[in-house]
Design a protein around this nucleic acid. Structure first.
Lengths: 186, 186
DNA sequence: CACTTTCTTGACCGGGCGGTCAAGTCCCTT
DNA sequence: AAGGGACTTGACCGCCCGGTCAAGAAAGTG
């Protein structure tokens, strides 16, 4: 699966043939169809495993933190760290979104991420530390903005995960307006 | 090109064959290869046209506005409007990002959008109405967040472009922190 | 009218695809 | 030792892909 992930990420799903995968691995084609029903199943398996792995990293990062804003922050840091360490997977998710048969699996993972984030946001609103806006919009904004920053600054420009997380968090907390509100607490 | 766009968006680039396009149009295959050198060229053509069209819409929207924050806002509104009216194109961009041969064309369009945004942000920083953060990060954050909101709320949930633009702008201007800073001026 | 250019057709081609399967090999159990 | 499930091989299959091209229809030109 690691090898297939690399090939899919580099060449795209369709252009990567099963033959290419098995010969690259030095095995026969039969062994592939012994472990997977189809090429499609392999891809879904990869997708699922990666999503599970990312979520595990996020959960671990926020495990013993109570403050909701801090939880959001640590979740973002876990995401940038993980994404920097798993570049390949990013390309796969982008492709998966373009094919109807893969989109549901993807959506499921994203919905979980959204739900996690919404929980923290709601918590923050209740405690009065987050503005009372639709938490769903906030969660999607956070995820979208983080995703774009990861894509551009980590994957395309090779910047560090910490630096990118800093920028995302600064933006999320304060927006862009100049004002005399005290700066974000570190 | 309109028909091909629809097929690509619905079925994906690779699964949509040239044969499918020409028979759907009721013409012979030769006529396709008379006007396009290859399937790849057709796709690039579609991509280019759409990007040009979106940019035109943005430029038109901000044409006679001076305030940089308002320019950013109107650019976002133009983007959500355009995206709502051109759902298909969104899928194509997502796919294009997954194949090395299409990525450059895409990147070029995005760089232009970033450059446009950076210009307004820099202007805003100079005038003291935008916080002095790296404009590149700000621009990417704005584009990423807007993209995600469009994807989820307009394309998946069918919400109105205005509503989504409102949410994007509220988030961008003020972030999520609760505080006594006066609300965004309309 | 003849003649050329522009445009259109669809049968056809080589090739590579995802997937199958008869024929083993390996190793565990008795 | 012998039997049998777990695993592996790679030639092979049918299909359909992107792309070609000989043939001809339409439209323009004198």
């Amino acid at each position: 699966m690691d090898f297939a992930t690399a090939r899919f990420a580099e060449n795209g799903y369709h252009p990567t043939s099963v033959a290419e995968i098995v010969t690259g691995l030095g095995v026969g084609k039969g062994v592939f169809y012994w472990y997977f029903q189809s090429k499609e199943e392999l891809f879904l398996e990869i997708l699922k495993e990666a999503q599970t792995d990312l979520r595990r990293a996020q959960q671990h990062a926020i495990a013993d933190v109570d403050d909701p804003i801090r939880r959001v922050e640590l979740g973002i840091r876990a995401t940038t760290d993980w994404s920097a360490a798993h570049r390949d997977f990013y390309k796969l998710t982008q492709f998966a979104a373009t094919e109807e048969r893969f989109a549901p699996a993807l959506r499921k993972g994203q919905e979980i991420a959204i739900r996690d984030t919404v929980k923290h946001v709601n918590d923050g609103i209740e405690r009065g530390v987050i503005r009372d806006i639709d938490p769903d919009y906030i969660a999607h904004s956070i995820l979208g903005l983080t995703g774009q920053l990861v894509r551009t600054f980590i994957h395309e420009r090779g910047q560090g995960a910490d630096e990118v997380a800093d920028a995302a968090i600064a933006f999320i907390l304060d927006g862009i307006l100049a004002g005399d509100r005290t700066a974000t607490p570190a």
